[in-house]
Amino acid sequence: SLGLRDLAHLADESRCFSVNEVEALFELYKKISCSIIDDGLIHKEELQLALFKTPSGQNLFLDRVFDLFDEKKNGVIEFDEFIHALSVFHPLAPVEDKINFAFRLYDLRQTGFIEREEVMQMVIAILMESRVKLSDDLLEAILDKTFEDADTDRDGKICQEEWKEFVLRHPNLLKNMTLPYLRDITTAFPSFVFNTAVED
């Protein structure tokens, strides 16, 4: 359980969640963190189970998502890390935070750039997942077109500044960076009222 001070601190830090919302997210956190290993911490398999409904299998983005949540890099997602990361996905979170988070997500090799090779790898992953077949020529054409638009200095990779400008021209690319659920999280997890420390 969490004390009122911890809750208030997390809510304050998030700039998006109230104390009751942090408590509701704690209900969700408890559920996920006890799904495989009952230690109150989210392990990678538990994140995978929550996202894909199966604890095994491969997904290109699972490692990146886990890594971005796991700020302390100790192999588990602690509750404060869970709140920090989810606050980026709040409908009211600053667009700048969403843009930066998405950049770090797509920078698979963490070189500080989104490289053509990485984009190719990510597109192939989604084509395989959705069982859509595209010819190599069409795939190259999609990549060419994307880089023509995004890579304004033509060095073959997308830097943070180019990414920001690109995303602002194509705001639909940030759609998956907003979770509408977070707007009404206390309704989704009403059981927080049994453990609440405060009435908002």
């Binding site: 996202l51 983005f61 998502v65 597109v123 084509l127 997942e129 595209l134 194509h170 659920y181």
Partner: peptide, 25 residues
């Protein structure tokens, strides 16, 4: 239509990037 989308529009459809699923546990 995949062919008419830019690469990142396609990428953002990946299930691993759909954190909505977290709330359906």
């Amino acid at each position: 239509q995949p062919a008419s989308m830019n690469a990142f529009e396609l990428i953002s459809l990946n299930r691993g990037l759909n954190l909505d699923n977290l709330f359906e546990t």
